[in-house]
Design a protein around this nucleic acid. Structure first.
Lengths: 212, 212
DNA sequence: TATGAAATACGTGTTAACACGTAATTTTGT
DNA sequence: ACAAAATTACGTGTTAACACGTATTTCATA
């Protein structure tokens, strides 16, 4: 029986979540090699125990799930990473392909769906629920629109999202405030933002998570 | 043994959390009368089973933990409500005193702290961790500043937080846009907002959760 | 080297958001 | 009934954010 079940480590800084997941996996007979409560501990478990699958919370002290995935890729570790996320954190999905992240578990998943995920990942296929695929589609459309901006435009958009005025941005970048205005105008046109008072500030704040 | 342990119902729309909490309580020998995955189910459990304590997630489909607390108060139900929250949702703490909410469990709590909470609540005392007390203090300072605003000023501040321009607000409220400007000026003065471009819009968006 | 894109900066004009103020009317509380 | 607060609305002025445009320089690429 244990031969057909993947070995797994898990990590989450929320004790109730960790307990829920841990109990679930044990009850289902998975080979749970260990559990951690922060990113460093999780990474150590992965390197020491070399599990088939690591189920990690994205947001943890010391190292995020993403950072762990990055480190595992860099170290050629074959463990398949599955990330747990409460919210659909937009910027995080963009990294999926780059980092060999095999799947995402939304915290609202029914327990059976979590088992599906594990089985799919064990077979070597990535697991993305329809909801996540759809969401990635939306994010990619928004990101590709952002890709039409020049480097300077992106930089200025970021500063706008940080509540900087044109004068402040100009001063920070050692350019004329008239240049900042020009860039703003170009951004509004490229992103097809409705021409309305404060519309660029509002847009920038609503999309600040994509302006990394 | 069961005589000294309170009867409890729990509800959370996140299966892993619910499982974690449920398993924990059962392991500790609490008298778990039932568990629900949405607000309606939770409320039904409370009215049918009349537990000593109800541990409820704040955000659930159909009824929030807060709404359940409101209904219980209205119906003179003596069950003590404990709310589970992932984030420190500011507006929700304001209602604690009004609604006989006996405590908050942050999702990052260690399991022992959850048990402390339950014991304290069973003895009839409210349970607020130091972290939450401190946070409530900050929120109250901000809220009392908001209390210096007149009803009209508050209404306009809300609309500002909803991205409305002065013209739009004036049109919606059937007043002159010059009146809106005057109100804005008064708000900025009362809330001691730094006089800087877009500062009121920025402030309103950052504090929108308190503008209910 | 030539070309196109990006970056820079200005001209000119309009409007919305702000400041500081006055004042009348209405509402509220005692 | 009276006073204070709230609401309403205007006068006047400044400035920042926007629009639409021109133009030069720099950079990247073929």
């Amino acid at each position: 029986m244990n031969n057909s079940k993947p070995s797994i480590i898990i990590a989450d800084d929320h004790p109730l979540l960790l307990k829920g997941l841990s109990d679930f996996l044990l009850e289902k007979g998975y080979n749970l090699l260990g559990s951690g409560t922060d990113g460093r501990e999780a990474y150590n478990l992965i390197t020491q125990k070399k599990p088939d699958i690591a189920i990690l919370d994205i947001q943890m002290p010391y190292m995020s799930g993403i950072e762990i995935a990055q480190q595992c890729k860099g170290a050629n570790i074959s463990t398949k990473i599955v990330l747990i996320t409460l919210h659909k954190e937009k910027e995080l999905y963009q990294k999926a392909k780059e980092l060999n992240i095999f799947g995402y578990i939304l915290k609202e998943f029914a327990l059976e769906e979590i088992e599906n995920c594990i089985k799919t990942v064990k077979e070597g296929s990535p697991f993305f629920s329809e909801k996540i695929k759809e969401f990635i589609g939306v994010v990619q459309a928004e990101v590709s629109e952002l890709d039409t901006l020049t480097p300077s435009e992106k930089k200025i958009l970021k500063l706008i999202a940080q509540d900087k005025t044109n004068k402040e941005i100009a001063s920070q970048l050692f350019i004329s405030y008239r240049t900042v205005e020009k860039h703003r105008s170009n951004i509004i046109t490229k992103l097809k933002i409705e021409p309305k008072t404060n519309s660029l500030l509002i847009w920038a704040k609503e999309h600040h998570d994509k302006l990394l």
